[in-house]
Write a protein that binds this DNA or RNA. Structure first.
Lengths: 229, 229
DNA sequence: AAATAGTATTTACGATTTGTTCACATTCGT
DNA sequence: ACGAATGTGAACAAATCGTAAATACTATTT
């Protein structure tokens, strides 16, 4: 994967291949296609994809079975695809060793973002930056303490974690799903609006007039931590 | 820059010019010198350097101001130079559009390595497709921010996405269906004229007299992003 | 084991922003 | 010149967000 990643799409619905193919070409990803479970396994071996997109409902072998098979020998990242209503399988899929989970119908942005996130997570060993400091703001994930202008501000664990997550990705918008996945974990089923409530409280606690940083809402996308706007 | 790059050194300290000059000659880079902010801007225009090294502390105009000025019209790579202890926020520098940041005192190896890295990054086919830069126009899909002449222009998410899509396929005409599929998703069924309205708003927001790029309508087909050659 | 305090989550609703469509003017290609 | 395609502004619809308050959960103390 020196340059662009190669993705293997496994789904019995040609429409999914067409639309994903379009997004991938746009990103200069290459891809190959499998239309049933057995076919999928064959392609995994022959194509050596960098990432596998696996629909749950497929003839011959279900995505779950395929996932289990793959995990016996390979650690290739897998993203499970499922129709709305099949959401029960989420926990199961992830316990089987899938790396992420997308519900149909999906948006282009979502799919591409998830793929990039998974590949990034796989490739880059995480840097240990548990302590972050900005003008008038310190976030310490070792002792779960947040200081504003040197003063300790009592924050709950979730608040510290979310703030740390956003502040360690300055300027980068993170959507609610990403935040939920990274803070709560992949097996969490909750209302994405929960994130909003936490953001609200974090803002209340840390914001002061003239702070050189802020939590910014990107309408329709998510939140980001910005410095000196 | 067919062969060796030309570097513009902007610093009020002659010692810096001497030492950098020495390294550059060794690498067969050519270079020119500016000793204050105003001088720097003049040289940027007349010398058309391939890369600019910009000290923060300079008479007449600080490096920060010069950087901001340059970014209004040019996308020439900039490396910011700063003395240890000068609490210039790395983030701030990079937000202004600088490409890298070196703290004095620097080692020859470090400077050369950084310069080569930046030039490589700029020249090679973009790996980081989420950020696009043109003369007087920057599109950042991580931030969802668009800058025209260095100034932040408030755009809605759809506007940023469409602009980024077109700008990442320079010269290539995309029809309305393609744009809808890639931005809205495969399951969207709406009026294709919606695209027109978004294009209109993008043009209103980003266009300025003499911009070296534009959103062009291809009658009966679609839209494309063009750059003056 | 029950009560309590501290957190987390859900829900609801108004406010706001954004997206879409429509109507009409203008431009384009034939 | 004509019909089709596009530009444009304004009205409208939809989606999203902020916030507060209610509810559920969890760990600790009594």
């Amino acid at each position: 994967m020196a340059t662009a990643p190669h993705i293997l799409i496994c789904d019995d619905d040609p429409v999914v291949h067409e639309s994903l193919g379009l997004y991938f070409e746009n990103e200069h990803f290459t891809y190959s296609s499998a239309y049933d479970g057995r076919d999928a396994l064959a392609h995994v071996v022959s194509d050596k994809p960098d990432l596998i997109i696996l629909d749950v409902m497929m003839p011959e072998k279900t995505g779950i079975e395929v996932c289990r098979e793959i995990r016996k020998t390979l650690s290739t990242p897998i993203i499970i695809l499922t129709a709305k209503g099949e959401e029960i399988d989420r926990v199961l899929g992830l316990e089987l060793g899938a790396d992420d989970y997308i519900v149909k119908p999906f948006s282009p942005r979502e799919v591409i973002a998830r793929i990039k996130a998974v590949l990034r997570r796989i490739n880059e060993p995480q840097e240990n930056t548990s302590f972050l400091r900005f003008e008038g703001l310190e976030i310490n994930l070792d002792n779960y303490q947040v200081k504003v202008k040197g003063e300790l501000v009592p924050c709950t664990p979730k608040e510290v974690e979310i703030l740390h997550l956003l502040a360690s990705h300055i300027g980068q918008v993170m959507d609610r799903e990403q935040i939920l996945s990274l803070i709560w974990g992949y097996d969490y089923f909750g209302d994405t609006r929960t994130v909003d409530t936490h953001i609200k409280r974090i803002r209340q606690k840390i914001y002061y007039e003239g702070a050189p940083w802020s939590l910014i809402t990107v309408y329709g996308v998510g939140y980001k931590f910005e410095v000196n706007s």
